[in-house]
Design a protein around this nucleic acid. Structure first.
Lengths: 345, 345
DNA sequence: TTGTATGCGTTATCAG
DNA sequence: CTGATAACGCATACAA
C-alpha cells in the first residue's frame, strides 16, 4: 500500500501527471486564488489525505525564510510557575500555527547565551525568554538585529525590549501592608535574585509599604541572593537565630517560601503562632499546606498568552501595536499563615 | 559594522575569495579531514566568530534530511511530574545536540493526533510521547514508518514500542501492603485513567497485595476515571459518604491525591486520624502538607534521561541496542498520612 | 487554469 | 589543498 519512497509535492504531482506548482497551490490553500479546477483540487486533496501528507516544513521554511517556530527560554521548567506559563505559551502559539522550541537555561547565564545562539541558528521567528541574569546586551542585539523578542517575568528597565510581568511592586506592597495591618513590626523580606527586576520591584513594594506606615526600615531584614529554596532556607534560618527575630517573613518567591518553611520547622517554630509567613507566587496546592499559605498569586496563563500576543505583534508586520511592556495584576490570597497581632478591640 | 545583508557560507566565501565548500568544511569541523590550510581555516573561523555566525540549520536539515530536533509530546506540562521529566529530557537532548519541540496534548486524543502530524511535518528525528489514550495505532504506524519513538510513563503492552516507565506494579503493591500491615482492611483505590498501563499496573499491584494478605477484594472500592484532581475529589467524596467507609485511600496519581484531600477536608475528616491516605506520585513539597503525605515517588530525572537514551539508540544506526522497554524503581516515602490500626503489642 | 524555472543555504560528490 | 556543481523540497515570478 504505502510503500512509497517518501511523499512530496513532486511524488503527488507525478502520480497525476500534473505539475509541482499545482500541488503546492492546492495544498497551501491557494486553489481559489489560482483558480485551480475543482477536479484537480479534489484529486490532490484526496491523495494528500490518503497519505497523511503535509508539505515538508523544512523546505518551506528555507524558501520562505520563516519557520513558524518560536524559542521559549526558561530558567527552570520544573518550577511550577514557569511550567504553567510554558503550557500557556505553547497552547497559544499552536493556535496561531507556531511551534515551540523549549530550552531550559538552568538559571545559568552561560547556558542562556549559548542557547540563544543555538536557537538563532535554528532560525526561530521569535523568542520568548525569562532571562537569567541582569545582562541585556545579547538580547538587545538580537532584537535590534530584527528578531522579535519578548521578555517574560523579568524586564530590563533601560531597554525597549517588550515584556510581560506581574505588577510585582503592587503585589509586594499589598502583602507587606497586610502584615503591617495585622500588627507586625519586624517583617523580614527574604529571597530573590537582587539584580532582577522582579526582586527590585518586590523589594521596593515592601519598602514603600513599610515607610508609608512609618515602620522603621531595618536593612538587615532584607536578605536573599536568589529565588531558590536553599536560599530561602539559609536566610530564614539566620533570621530566626537572631536576638530580635522577625515576627513575619515575606518571601519573594515560591521556592524561597518552602525554604523558609523548612527553616521554621527545623527551629521548632510553628506558622503562624510563632512566626507569620507570606509569599510572592502562589502555589497550586497552597491550601493544603500544614498551614494554608497566604500568598500573592500571579496569572500564569495570562502571562503566557500576552507573551505570545506581544511577539505576534512584532511578527505581524502589518501590526502597528508597539507595546512596550505589560504588567498584570496579582491576586492576594488570604489563608492562614499570618497571625493577627493587633489587640482585640 | 555589521550591516551585512545576512551572513552565510556564501557571503563569507566571497569576502575572502574562496569557495563555499571550503567555508562549509571549516565550519563543520572537517578542516582536518579535507586538509584545509591552517591559514584558510583561521581566516574563516575568525570571521565566523566575529559575526557570531553559525550555518543555517534549516538549509542543513533540508540537505541532510535530519533536523536534530526531537518532539516531546506531553499531556500536561504544568503537571509537576511531567514538568520535571521535560526538564530532564531537554537537558539530556541538548547535551547530544538535539533541540526539543514541546507540545502539550492537553490530555486530549485529538490534539495528540493532530500534533503528531504537525511534528512529523516538521521533520523531527524522533518522538518522545506520553500518550493520552489507549490507542496506539498512530504511534505504531509512525514507528514502523521509520520514525524513532519512545513512550514515556505509559506503554502499550501489545506493541514493540520502546518505553520508559516506573515499576508501577511494584510501587502500588508496596504501598498497599504497607496499608495492610498498618492494619487497614477497607482500602480504596482511587483515580487513574482505566485503560492506561500506569493505571492497570497500579491497580494490579493493589489487587495482588490485597489478595496476598487475604483481604477481601471489594471491586466497588476500585474507582476512578482519570488522573485529574476533580476525579480524585468526586470519587473520594462518594466513598466517604458510604455506610462502610474505607479506612484508607490509595490514590493513583498526585492530582487524584489533592482531590482526595479536598474531599476529606470538606467532609470534616482529618488525615490520618479519620482516614489514611497514600498516593502514587510524590510531590516536591509533600513534607509540608497539612499532614505530610506518604507517597510512592518516581525518578523523574532518570525517566527523562532514559527516554532520550532509548531514542538515541534508535537514531544511531550503528547501535545494536534494541531495548524494548525500561521500568524504573519507585521509592516509598513514609511520612505521616497513614494511621497505624494494629493493636499495640 | 496550469506549467517552467529559479533560488532559499547547505552538504556531498566529483574533479582537479 | 580547493572548487564547481547538484540536490534536498518547496513557493513564486513569469510564461502560456
Amino acid at each position: 500500500m504505502s510503500h512509497n519512497e517518501k511523499a512530496s509535492l513532486k511524488s503527488i504531482a507525478e502520480k497525476f501527471g500534473i505539475s509541482v506548482s499545482t500541488v503546492s497551490r492546492v495544498l497551501s490553500g491557494k486553489a481559489r486564488q489560482y483558480r485551480i479546477s475543482t477536479k484537480t483540487e479534489e484529486l490532490v486533496r484526496e491523495e494528500a489525505d490518503r497519505l497523511g501528507f503535509s508539505p515538508n516544513q523544512i523546505a518551506s521554511s528555507l524558501r520562505l525564510k520563516r519557520t513558524r517556530t518560536l524559542g521559549l527560554l526558561i530558567p527552570d521548567i520544573s518550577n511550577s510557575f514557569f511550567a504553567s506559563v510554558a503550557r500557556s505559551v505553547e497552547v497559544e502559539a499552536r493556535k496561531r500555527g507556531y511551534s515551540i522550541i523549549l530550552a531550559d537555561s538552568q538559571e545559568n547565564e552561560k547556558i542562556e547565551q549559548e542557547t540563544i545562539r543555538l536557537l538563532k541558528s535554528r532560525n526561530i521567528d521569535g523568542l520568548i525568554v525569562a532571562p537569567v541574569g541582569q545582562i541585556s546586551e545579547h538580547l538587545e542585539k538580537l532584537h535590534k538585529g530584527g528578531l522579535p523578542v519578548v521578555l517574560l517575568d523579568r524586564y530590563f528597565p533601560n531597554t525597549d525590549l517588550p515584556f510581560v510581568t506581574s505588577d510585582n511592586y503592587k503585589g509586594a506592597f499589598e502583602a507587606t501592608e497586610y502584615l503591617i495591618l495585622k500588627g507586625h513590626e519586624k517583617i523580614a523580606c527574604v529571597g530573590g535574585l537582587p539584580d532582577t527586576s522582579t526582586c527590585i520591584d518586590r523589594r521596593k513594594g515592601y519598602r514603600d509599604a513599610m515607610e508609608k506606615h512609618g515602620r522603621s526600615l531595618d536593612e538587615s531584614m532584607i536578605v536573599g541572593d536568589d529565588f531558590g529554596e536553599e536560599n530561602g532556607y539559609i536566610e530564614s534560618k539566620l533570621l530566626l537565630q537572631r536576638n530580635k527575630k522577625p515576627t513575619a517573613i515575606f518571601t519573594l518567591g515560591n521556592l524561597n517560601a518552602f525554604g523558609a518553611m523548612r527553616a521554621i520547622v527545623e527551629e521548632g517554630l510553628s506558622i503562624p503562632d510563632d512566626i507569620s509567613l507570606i509569599s510572592f507566587d502562589d502555589y497550586v496546592h497552597s491550601a493544603f499546606l500544614a498551614t494554608p499559605l497566604t500568598a500573592v498569586g500571579q496569572q500564569m496563563e495570562a502571562i503566557g498568552q500576552f507573551a505570545v500576543k506581544l511577539l505576534y505583534n512584532q511578527l505581524d508586520s502589518a501590526s502597528t501595536a508597539k507595546s512596550k511592556g505589560i504588567s498584570l495584576a496579582t491576586q492576594f490570597n488570604e489563608r492562614a499563615s499570618v497571625k493577627d497581632l493587633t489587640p482585640n478591640k
